[in-house]
Design a protein around this nucleic acid. Structure first.
Lengths: 210, 210
DNA sequence: TTCCAATTGGAGTGACCGCTACAGTAAGTG
DNA sequence: CACTTACTGTAGCGGTCACTCCAATTGGAA
């Protein structure tokens, strides 16, 4: 009794259904935003009835928040942040930019949906927006730490400004690509941006040092 | 007998009501996006019944498109594009960036709503999105022309890349400010971006010349 | 004064919304 | 075997959606 490996095989379909619901939801929400994502549409796309969706998720807000969380995880996995490799600071910034560019091409849903939620300002903020801002804060923190190790001569304010500028460029280039499609070579533009960020850091350091 | 000044005073309220409807709509649409903008909410905010809205506008799509058009006009007016003043290319880029930053602080509705529409990808594209992409194209053309006069040594591809990068930075910085509020000093960041764009142009020219 | 066109007000329309109630089914557990 | 747990399927609830119909109202023209 009480088998050592109480695997508790959850009646096969449970987890798979949850994934199917999230797959459908991320697709629809990434196309149509929060209000545009109807439970009926998600239900039709994943083939499960509305009651199943509400068994797996408390309400629509909960569903969207789960979508954000999962797509952030898969995006983070796609970034493949580089290890402690050596090289010039420019090289390391460029490598990181290339990774981010690749991840945004491979998994654009996270940022597209996230930006749509972030731009909205409804009176009662949906949980999905809060979750997005949180995970975005996590990503920002990682960038800040990297820039601190790369440019130790900069003070806190400088690092803050540099981080903001780096993220803004990434967001903006992503938006450009979402609007104009493949006409934008995201990797080339991100390489350009990496050079810019590096140059800004150099200028800042020179200005502060004099 | 056919008064010389046949001003045809359109029964007073006509045009004013139209403006009131647009005022209400731009506010709600800027907060909640396309799907989130309900006619009932617009009606409540402007104090006119739904039937009046439908007398002035064909349907919801038409209303949103009109909102985009009008807010683009007021944004363009806020940009106050500088004349043929002289100065170094860096100075002129910086002045332009400052103007755009100011206009985005003063009239953020245009870009906020526009970006929300642009990021959405519903099967049948709303006219508002098309209108936004059109007027955005107009703005892009102006930037291209300015950069061409400032950096005549760059070829078409270089100008294209430079324009894309300049716009991306502006979009990204705007998004940052919308997300984090006044914590972002938009004017300072735009000045930084102007320097970056100028530096990129210099690097491009040097690279092409060798 | 009569008439017309420009608006407004209000009352609805059917379709869709998020969400729920509840019975049914199938697998593991005693 | 009965019993519990983990879902699925159907039907439908009240509310809101975009949108329409049509009877007022109101100012200007004839």
């Amino acid at each position: 009794m009480t088998r050592p490996h109480t695997t508790r095989r959850k009646r096969a379909n449970g987890l798979e259904s949850r994934q199917r619901i999230l797959d459908a939801a991320v697709e629809i929400a990434g196309e149509r935003g929060y209000e545009g994502t109807s439970i009926a549409a998600v239900s039709a796309k994943c083939g499960l009835p509305a009651s199943s969706i509400y068994w797996h998720f408390k309400d629509k807000d909960d569903l969207i928040a789960a979508v954000i969380e999962r797509s952030f995880d898969s995006w983070l996995a796609a970034v493949e942040l580089p290890g402690e490799e050596t090289g010039t600071s420019l090289q390391r910034v460029t490598v990181m930019a290339a990774n981010v560019a690749k991840s945004l091409v491979d998994a654009p849903d996270f940022l597209r949906l996230g930006l749509m939620l972030a731009l909205e300002r409804r009176p009662t903020e949906p949980r999905g927006r809060t979750v997005f801002l949180q995970v975005r804060g996590v990503a920002r923190q990682k960038i800040t730490e990297m820039l601190q190790t790369l440019f130790p001569e900069l003070d806190e304010d400088g690092i803050h400004t540099l981080t903001t500028y780096a993220i803004a460029g990434a967001d903006g280039l992503f938006v450009q690509r979402e609007i104009t499609g493949d006409a934008v070579d995201l990797r080339a533009m991100f390489e350009l941006h990496a050079q810019s960020v590096h140059e800004v850091a150099r200028r800042m350091a020179a200005g502060a040092g004099r």
